[in-house]
Design a protein around this nucleic acid. Structure first.
Length: 1461
RNA sequence: GGGCCCAUAGCUUAGCAUGGUUGGAGCGCCCGGCUGAUAACCGGGAGGUCGAGAGUUCAAAUCUCUUUGGGCCCA
């Protein structure tokens, strides 16, 4: 059964509903299981770091994965989709440190203890994992969230260990001393990826290094970071540069300095130099070997103890750059370049700095000082010793620890490395075996990364990480443990022990070599390596082999471009170690997401941009569609919330088409499964075949795109189809066919085609926008539980008709041209044109037009379309005769002008015929005048009313002559359109019927009468009449159409509900129902009471029908009830009383709980166990407030939910007034629960309800808790009538003003801070009061449902502001339902001006809302009016309200003016 | 400093692999229309030295080189 889609596309509601549906029906699990037998497809999720909240980039990443995973599943593949989380490492540690207020490692060990610290880290990371999982789920991402792999699990760690053991076996694992980036705060080596470069002001000093054996000459050495000078071991010059010996005079002293020749000017300008002179020039290479005195040697004794070939000497290095003096200080212990140069020259590594960044004893006088504070000390020392030539500052990028933001230093330390040199070639080869998308991601980027790779330092001196499985003996023996089994052989091993520090540190082994105790190296592993093993770690390899054999290797991964250096690389590296091969077959490298300003989204913790604010507004699907369609995945994406809005609009349109389709399909009870495409083919119109052809094309196109990961073009193709083909063309073409009265065969053909197209779109969109697709799929009555279980749609070539598509394109082009022409001359589409003639230049175009002529006529609204084939000419051209004046003049002299005039007035054809035969004779003043052929010429021209338009394939003539018949038809259409507008304004159901009256000029009535069938059919009018005098139907509007005054009046019949009920009687369909209704049976009750003979008297009901009706009512009521109910989760029809839904498997039984006493299953809401009789509500009972108890009265609502609702501010009354949709929005309220609640109230309300405001009331209440109405029993009514108003004190004075002319108006000026209620049929009295008050000079404001201009004119209001109560969304109009806007507008006026307000048409507000709400509005306004010394006049037609309501109204006002009494 | 990617209307972008009518869209702006999908929808208009410069070619948004700006990565 096709289900009517909701009227509006509300993403928030829809997505929640769909996600609930997925959850309750276990749609994800079932989809996965469905493909269990399919070909295996191993996808691996690159584990995001657990930062706790996701940003746009993370969202984009997961969305891409979700698209491909869903797509592959639809292709039938059995996809492994375990998500992962990267949960070790410094970021977590740093955050835990912050939480515990710890500042360094010492405090972790001494204050907190490693055990407690690591436990905190685990808890913290698990918490973050949970948060992120929720966020990913809310994006609609279907991965196996219940079973993620985590880098912190023992099994995972074991796989890492195995890999490291492999590395050891392959001699890739090594330990040596190296200079690395080091964070002195975190006291660990850090990787380059953990460093963030930011501007930093640093020293830039020039220091004199006195040369040995060159009297008085010094090298002028440049250094930043003065603290590195104590560890200076040599200086470097560039061998290619020229260096100058410069003699400078400074403060009357002479200095002889060596520096780069080109820099002499720069340097001499730095200090106050009196004079300088270049003495000598040498090449850098000539300086090599020169020896100098270390300027701090006296403070750093170690400098004097050194010996070696290159100590304190000049070296040559190409690395010396064209900056500063060209003489660079080298401290191999403090810089990577220095280390490399030093190593090449055999210079010992001197690094007198400890892990915390403090100088060691080796640093002599500087020992104990932090390097950062030493900068100024060193500079001062140099200055004192006169070695400082210049002290400056430069701003440059300095590395900062990404996690804690401390400046990074370089420091020599012993670390564990994975050596890259031996496997580099293998890695490069393996890159070739992978399909990279885009190709350059592999062949360019990844290759470059590997080519430049250096050894990988994998050790970290921290706590929260995979412990390195390396045990070392003091004798030097080293062993690598590769499994838990291996570990279990150690001392202090416990089964099931956590493999993290500190527990692992207590496990020791006996050294095989010397028998001593081997202890684990205290380091942990670089987190970058953790995720590198995810491809086999998530399969439990090597501990479990089966999974591995099933799935290996990974078919596809996708991550952002930065993973070239990260995960892509670590996977490759680890893969080569573990298996000698790259572990993935194809890679989609995706781009970055930037914010709308183009700034990259920050990666660090706590500084993220949420995608969820956009989602709240436009929904997840819009976000997904927007991201996926705007760029190829490998490009960077600039995220713009506006673009999400646009995507939302497309989905909105799709929804509208869907809504359109399902609305009519369900109305007509169209069952798509009753019709096959082939079976329907005879009924298809050309546009149906066209649509089907388009759909098949689209399928192929989208598949091709997705195969190439051109997700953006796939999205664009779908979007184009939805907007252009489906919405803007197809729906337009089938509109007429889909009307309720339409021919069923033709109509159903359109439904079938549309259904087919919509179903295809839901499938094509399923991977991209999973929610809306699901929702559409559900209402399209498709066979599977979920759209995501369906197979990927395959193109049916047989349905493709390229020729038809081309022809349709031609026709569309023509229709558009005609529309343009109409627009140009201002002829609306509603007004038909007489004729369109299209002359085409080629056969194909003519054929196209001939073929699709019906479409052409309908869409251009033309009465006739003529197609001319190539060579044919249009005969509609008007021939003109043009007298040749000179020729006539030559013969007939002064008569020429008369002759010419006569010629022009004769029928052209007659003239031409005669001329063709030789001559044409006319009589002038009794003489025959002969017109010779040379005296005239004939010319063709367009007749009047005809315009001609050229197009690329021919010419077109449009005859726009407006004949009386066409004019009448135009008016008929105008009337139809106006009535439709009015139907809409009174919110009438599409299917419902009305009575219609039309009042027009008599002349027009005559021509229009011909169209009464048309008009009443189109407007679903059960009666239709032209009235000469007054319009009497309920809703009356005066229109001005093309200068004609047209009065329209309609009365809604509200038949739909009744007809729907009648139709449920077996054998009774719409026709019979209508007949019954028309003869006065307006409800099931009245029908039930009718006798057989009475029924038979009804016109259109035969005996058989009557008997069917009687039989229906004569059976017991239970049997009459519908046999089917709807599943609350998937809305499938289920048998009454079924225990679970056969479609989605959800339990339909009331929620059960276990009796704590006997463990029997009892309904969730029962207070007493049916089995053992124990009372279940214990001490808590006292604590439950009355309000909560009331809520718990609702069956199925447990204590917890009731409490939750109560805390949210709901009491029983509020719940009764909360719609099901709103209920679902409350967190914790599921769809079925919401349904249960609203069903409860529906039943409840029928029993006890305030007659006035419909609020629920208890049986014994004396007064309504909501509106205060006093309930009276029948006996009391009589007394009531004598004393109609309960509280006399509040009764306003009733002013008796029988007549009200201008004089009295002035005399009776209205009081300030006063509200007047005027009881009258029209607004006359109220208006008089209002205008009189305005004449006193007070500003006025009117609220009315009359059209403002008309209203102003009627009452001579000038430019007084008139707010129009109307559903037409104009600027100064207020929708009658939008009381908030109304109240705001009035408040604004009153507070700003204190003027007088007329509220006309209170009853209109009441019909559009309900009485009590309007009453509340009035109460609120009363206070505002009082406070601002304003005045308000409210008029109401008492006939529209009942006595009680009137009483209540009168109580709210200060005075009542009753014109009727 | 090196590698790679990106640049088209005010904004977001298609087209570029394979050069060829007048460079397409959407949003926004202005003007109009439609109306039983309707707080939707449709049409028209204005708005582009296709980042800049050079080259190849009969012909360049498209191919080549140089250059500028932005991004990612590596030093």
């Amino acid at each position: 059964m096709i289900k009517q889609a909701e009227k509006e596309y509300s993403p928030e509601r829809l997505e929640k509903k769909v996600q609930d549906f997925w959850k309750l029906s276990r749609a994800y699990e079932k989809t996965r299981d469905l493909r269990e037998k399919g070909k295996k497809y191993y996808f691996v999720d690159g584990p995001p770091y657990t930062t706790g909240s996701i940003h746009m980039g993370t969202a984009y990443n997961k969305i891409l994965k979700d698209v491909i995973v869903r797509y592959r599943r639809m292709q039938g593949l059995n996809v492994r989709d375990q998500p992962g989380f990267d949960m070790h490492g410094l970021p977590i540690e740093v955050n835990v440190e912050k939480k515990l207020s710890i500042v360094n490692k010492k405090q972790i060990e001494d204050l907190v203890g490693v055990e407690s610290f690591v436990n905190s880290c685990r808890d913290f990371s698990l918490d973050l994992q949970g948060q992120m999982t929720d966020q990913f789920r809310s994006l609609g991402v279907w991965l196996d969230w219940d079973n993620p792999y985590r880098t912190i699990d023992n099994r995972y760690i074991e796989s890492v260990w195995w890999t490291l053991q492999k590395a050891h076996e392959k001699k890739i694992l090594d330990r040596y001393t190296s200079v690395l980036s080091w964070c002195p705060r975190c006291e660990t080596a850090i990787a380059d990826v953990e460093i963030r470069y930011t501007d930093f002001e640093d020293y830039s000093i020039l220091v004199k290094f006195l040369l040995k054996g060159r009297s008085g000459e010094s090298l002028l050495v440049w250094a930043s970071m003065p603290w590195t000078l104590p560890a200076n071991m040599a200086v470097a010059v560039n061998p290619e540069y020229e260096y100058a010996k410069v003699e400078m005079t400074i403060e009357d002293r002479k200095e002889i300095l060596w520096l780069r020749r080109d820099k002499v000017d720069d340097v001499t300008s730095l200090v106050a130099i009196q004079d300088f002179q270049i003495m000598e020039i040498v090449k850098g290479s000539d300086m090599v070997g020169w020896e100098y005195f270390h300027p701090l040697a006296s403070r750093v004794p170690y400098q004097n103890e050194l010996s070696g070939e290159w100590i304190h000497k000049v070296l040559s290095s190409e690395l010396v750059e064209d900056e500063n003096t060209g003489v660079v200080h080298l401290a191999p212990g403090h810089s990577r370049e220095g280390y490399e140069i030093g190593e090449a020259h055999g210079i010992p590594l001197f690094c007198p700095v400890d892990e915390g960044g403090y100088f060691t004893d080796e640093a002599g006088q500087y020992a104990g000082k932090h390097v950062r504070e030493s900068n100024s000390i060193v500079v001062e020392d140099l200055r004192r010793e006169r070695w400082l030539f210049h002290e400056g500052r430069i701003t440059r990028k300095i590395g900062h620890c990404w996690r804690c933001d401390s400046p990074v230093i370089h420091r020599a330390s012993q670390q564990w490395f994975l050596k890259v040199s031996d496997i580099k070639e293998r890695m490069l080869d393996e890159i070739e075996d992978v399909k990279w998308i885009p190709e350059w991601a592999g062949t360019q980027k990844q290759k470059e990364r590997v080519e430049k790779a250096t050894d990988w330092c994998i050790s970290r001196q921290r706590y929260w990480g995979t412990p390195l499985p390396i045990w070392i003996c003091e004798c030097g023996e080293t062993t690598i443990i590769g499994s838990i089994k291996g570990l279990s052989k150690g001392k202090n091993y416990n089964k099931d022990m956590d493999l993290h520090r500190p527990w692992i540190d207590s496990v020791t082994f006996e050294c095989k070599e010397c028998g001593k105790e081997m202890r684990r190296t205290s380091d942990v592993l670089d987190v970058g390596f953790d995720s590198g093993v995810s491809m086999w770690a998530q399969l439990g390899y090597p501990a479990v082999k089966k999974q591995f054999n099933n799935w290996w290797p990974c078919r596809w991964i996708t991550e952002s471009q930065e993973q070239t250096d990260g995960w892509f690389y670590s996977l490759l590296f680890a893969g080569i170690i573990g298996f000698g091969e790259i572990p993935y077959k194809s890679v989609l490298m995706h781009g970055w997401v930037f914010d709308s300003e183009g700034q990259p989204l920050s990666k660090s913790m706590g500084d993220v941009s949420y995608p969820f604010d956009v989602i709240g507004e436009y929904g997840v699907d819009s976000l997904r569609f927007c991201m996926l369609k705007s760029k190829p995945p490998w490009d960077d994406l600039k995220f713009d919330p506006e673009a999400v809005k646009e995507a939302n609009q497309t989905l909105d349109i799709l929804w509208n088409v869907h809504r359109f389709g399902t609305l009519y399909m369900s109305m007509d009870r169209f069952n798509p499964n009753d019709w096959s495409l082939a079976g329907m083919s005879g009924n298809f119109s050309p546009e149906d075949n066209w649509l089907l052809s388009k759909v098949e094309n689209l399928k192929g196109e989208v598949e091709n795109d997705l195969e190439e990961y051109n997700i953006h073009t796939a999205c664009n193709a779908i979007e184009e189809f939805i907007l252009n083909d489906l919405s803007r063309w197809y729906v337009k073409l089938i509109r007429n066919r889909s009307w309720p009265e339409g021919d069923n065969n033709k109509k159903f053909a359109a439904y079938k085609a549309l259904h087919e197209a919509l179903l295809a779109v839901t499938r094509l969109l399923a991977p991209i926008t999973p929610h809306i697709s699901e929702s559409m799929y559900q209402s399209l009555d498709a066979d599977l539980l979920s759209v995501h279980m369906s197979d990927w749609p395959v193109t049916d070539e047989a349905l493709i008709d390229k020729k038809l598509e081309e022809r349709m394109t031609v026709v569309r082009g023509i229709v558009e041209l005609v529309s343009k022409a109409r627009q140009k001359i201002g002829l609306k589409l509603r007004w038909p044109v007489k004729n369109i003639v299209i002359k085409s230049n080629d056969d194909e175009t003519a054929k196209s037009l001939e073929n699709l002529k019906d479409i052409l006529m309908e869409q251009t609204n033309s009465k006739e379309v003529d197609i001319l084939w190539p060579g044919e000419e249009w005969d509609g051209m008007v021939l003109n005769v043009r007298p040749k004046v000179e020729a006539i003049g030559r013969v007939y002299k002064q008569w020429w002008s008369k002759i010419a005039t006569m010629l022009e007035s004769r029928p052209v054809e007659e003239v031409r015929k005669a001329i063709g035969e030789g001559e044409y004779k006319i009589g002038i003043e009794g003489q025959i005048v002969r017109i010779e052929p040379d005296m005239v010429e004939f010319m063709e021209r367009l007749p009047e009313h005809v315009i001609s338009i050229g197009f690329d394939k021919g010419d077109m003539y449009i005859d726009m002559e407006m004949t009386p018949e066409l004019r009448a038809e135009g008016f008929a259409r105008e009337i139809v359109r106006r009535v439709q507008q009015m139907r809409k304004e009174i919110d009438l159901d599409v299917e419902d019927f009305i009575r219609t009256q039309v009042k027009v000029r008599v002349e027009l009535t005559k021509v229009l009468e011909e169209y009464d069938d048309y008009i009443s059919g189109e407007t679903r009018s059960r009666s239709f009449e032209f009235v000469p005098e007054e319009l009497t139907e309920e809703y009356i509007v005066e229109w001005n159409v093309e200068g004609e005054a047209i009065g329209l009046a309609i009365t809604p019949l509200y038949m739909k509900e009744t007809l729907d009920a009648f139709i449920k009687i077996p054998g009774i369909d719409e026709k019979e129902s209508m007949a019954l209704f028309d003869s006065g049976y307006a409800s099931m009750l009245s029908l039930q009471q009718a006798s057989l003979s009475e029924l038979m008297e009804v016109e259109g009901i035969d005996e058989l029908d009557a008997r069917k009706i009687r039989r229906y009512f004569d059976q017991p009521e239970e049997l009459r009830a519908e046999e089917k109910a709807l599943c609350p989760v998937c809305e499938a029809q289920v048998e009454m009383g079924a225990s679970e839904c056969s479609r989605c498997g959800v339990s339909l039984l009331p929620e059960m709980k276990k009796c704590p006493n006997c463990e029997a299953e009892i309904p969730l809401d029962s207070e007493e166990c049916e089995n053992c009789g124990s009372v279940l509500i214990e001490e808590e009972v006292e604590e439950i407030s009355e309000e909560v108890k009331e809520i718990m009265e609702i069956p199925g609502l447990g204590l917890e939910t009731a409490r939750m609702l109560h805390e949210l501010g709901y009491d029983i009354d509020a719940l009764a007034n909360t719609s099901e949709e709103e209920l679902v929005k409350i967190e914790g309220i599921t769809v079925p629960l919401a349904r249960r609640i609203s069903v409860y109230f529906e039943e409840w309300v029928e029993e006890l309800v305030c007659p006035l405001c419909n609020a629920p009331a208890s049986a014994d209440a004396a007064q309504c808790t909501q509106c205060g109405t006093i309930f009276v029993s029948e006996e009391e009514v009589e007394t009531m009538e004598e004393e109609p108003v309960p509280e006399a004190a509040e009764v306003p004075e009733v002013i008796d003003v029988p007549s009200f002319d201008e004089d009295t108006a002035v005399a009776m000026s209205l009081e300030k801070s006063h509200i007047y209620l005027v009881k009258e049929e029209r607004q006359q009295r109220a208006m008089d009061m209002f205008t009189a008050t305005m004449r006193e000079g007070r500003p006025g404001l009117c609220v009315t449902r009359t059209f403002p201009d008309k209203f102003r004119e009627s009452y001579n209001l000038g430019d007084t502001t008139v707010l129009w109560l109307s559903n037409i969304g104009k600027e100064d109009s207020i929708r009658p339902k939008d009381l908030e806007k109304l109240s705001l507008s009035l408040e604004k006026f009153v507070t700003e001006t204190g003027g007088v307000v007329l509220l006309d048409g209170l009853e209109y507000l009441v019909t559009n809302n309900n009485f009590i709400i309007v009453l509340r509005l009035l109460q609120a306004l009363r206070d505002v009016v009082a406070m601002n010394k304003s005045t308000m006049i409210v008029n109401v037609n008492p006939a529209t309200l009942d006595t009680n309501q009137l009483n209540l109204l009168e109580r709210e006002v200060d005075s009542v003016v009753d014109t009727l009494s």
